[in-house]
Nucleic acid binder design. Structure first.
Length: 477
DNA sequence: TTTTGAGTTGTTCGA
DNA sequence: GTCGAACAACTCAAA
């Protein structure tokens, strides 16, 4: 950075990570308001390499949308690959940038990386500034009366439900630098590579980007919020907010959703929806408190639960491939494979089936979801699995075993959801059910015109076995 | 320090 | 069909 004009203002780098939006992005707004050119950058670093196939594909969609949104405002998204500290230091050198802004993240890998980046930048005389925006409440701002961290959801909810929150920030105008640095081409990154045959199928069902998020939430608020408490359980309907992937990549901020739900004045649904946003907060607070939430049982002793091992490997495969013979479970697993999403209630049912009827370690399910879910989020996924398995904070009691058949009667009474995703046995299966066979690897050897598989486990027996295993485990705890 | 009330989403069984 | 109880005890959070 020797030959830079001395009189030109030094640009600010804005490092996008899981905040792929222009509106209500405090770090971006601060950069724009500083009156200097802003250079938006996304880095393909180890955190991107570690993503599962579906979330990495979804990231590509999100980056494409962000890039387009920036271009529409006369800006650009600069793409670079490599370790973030090196890339940012280098980019600052090329552009003469004096500061880097980004939005704070909370998982242990991101925190360690961001600490390294800060140090490296400061060593180069570049300011590193971190902003909030991924959460409604910073983890250390929600405390019990004794100053500790909440471990039960309801008191956590009560502590925050009436808090005044700032209004979301506007999408800023971004001043372009005198010259743009080089950028990789998004298509060359091939972030869709691991999806193979599935990428084209999932693409039919996914709308990525900030504009899509705002359109969808507007529809949800107008049509489904008032009846959210019961509507969100009917699995064949599109009565949920559909915000999970948008939130995961930060295409919309939780603050924006919070305020729009309040403004909609649709109770009691509005409160139920805000509770769901706070569940996301709760997961992040627990992860920030103890990152081991992501990999081991939160409840002491539960890492020694007698999960079944290799003898039942075939059952895990059947679960993953949607051929357990329990129609609700199979429909849900196929929905996930085809769309990259699974209805919230269905997630509980397939998780209960895996951990209880099949007595498989919850981490097996956690990893498969990490591979398949476009909306994958480290904190929410870990908490969800531990909650169902019984090893988590505020978890469901172990004897609460979902019966897939009964759940289907209650929440898919006319069988629409099951018919939508299971082709076998239907004379004219819908395109959704057939799409599964286009998406799966050929090595699975499944055919739409085969017979629907027989149950791999008797529901009554599976439940009894799970309760017996739990009882024995609990006696020795 | 002790006490008290409560805790996302279920199922089954018997009256 | 409907309803309440049992399923287990334990930990959390506040008074």
């Amino acid at each position: 950075m020797t030959d830079l004009p001395a009189n030109r203002p030094r640009p600010i780098l804005f490092w996008f990570r899981r905040d792929l939006r222009l509106g209500d992005n405090p770090g971006l707004l601060a950069a724009a308001r500083a009156g200097q050119p802003v250079i938006p950058v996304f880095i393909r670093d180890a955190a991107v390499e570690m993503l599962g196939a579906a979330p990495r594909w979804r990231l590509q969609q999100g980056l494409a949308a962000l890039s387009e949104a920036l271009a529409a405002r006369g800006s650009r998204l600069i793409l670079r690959a490599g370790p973030a500290a090196e890339v940012l230091a280098e980019l600052a050198g090329e552009t003469g940038a004096g500061a880097v802004h980004w939005t704070r993240l909370y998982d242990p890998e991101a925190r360690a990386r961001d600490a390294r980046v800060s140090t490296r930048l400061q060593d180069c005389g570049i300011a590193a500034r971190e902003f909030g925006g991924h959460l409604l409440f910073e983890p250390d701002s929600v405390r019990t009366s004794q100053g500790g961290a909440f471990k039960v959801f309801t008191p956590f909810w009560r502590a925050v439900q009436n808090r005044a929150l700032p209004e979301p920030g506007a999408a800023p105008d971004l001043t372009a630098p005198a010259a743009w640095p080089e950028s990789d081409r998004l298509a060359d990154w091939r972030l869709d590579h691991d999806m193979q045959r599935g990428a084209a199928v999932v693409a039919r069902y996914e709308q990525a980007g900030e504009a899509a998020a705002l359109t969808r939430i507007a529809r949800f608020l107008a049509a489904d919020l008032a009846d959210y408490e019961t509507g969100r359980d009917r699995v064949a309907e599109t009565a949920t907010s559909g915000m999970s992937a948008h939130l995961s990549l930060g295409e919309v901020s939780p603050l924006t959703l919070w305020h729009r739900a309040l403004a909609a004045r649709a109770e009691p649904g509005g409160e139920a929806f805000r509770r769901q946003l706070v569940w996301r907060e709760f997961a992040y607070h627990l992860m920030a408190q103890d990152p081991r939430l992501l990999e081991s049982a939160w409840r002491p002793g539960w890492d020694h639960f007698p999960w079944r091992r290799d003898a039942r490997a075939g059952t895990v495969l059947a679960w993953q491939q949607g051929r357990t013979g329990a129609p609700f479970v199979d429909a849900a697993m196929r929905e996930m494979y085809v769309t990259g999403h699974m209805h919230n209630r269905a997630r509980m049912i397939v998780a209960s089936y895996l951990t209880k009827h099949l007595l498989c370690d919850w981490r097996i399910g956690q990893r498969w979801f990490e591979h398949c879910l476009a909306d994958w989020d480290p904190a929410a996924n870990a908490l969800g699995w531990q909650w169902v398995a019984g090893s988590g904070p505020d978890a469901a009691p172990f004897f609460r075993v979902f019966n897939p058949a009964l759940q289907a009667e209650k929440f898919d009474p006319d069988g629409q959801y099951r018919r939508r995703w299971i082709a076998e046995g239907q004379a004219h299966p819908p395109a959704t059910a057939l799409a599964f066979f286009d998406a799966i690897p050929k090595s699975w050897g499944l055919r739409a015109d085969a017979d629907y598989p027989a149950p791999i486990v008797n529901l009554k027996q599976g439940r009894a076995d799970a309760l017996a295993a739990y009882k024995e485990f609990n006696a020795g705890l």
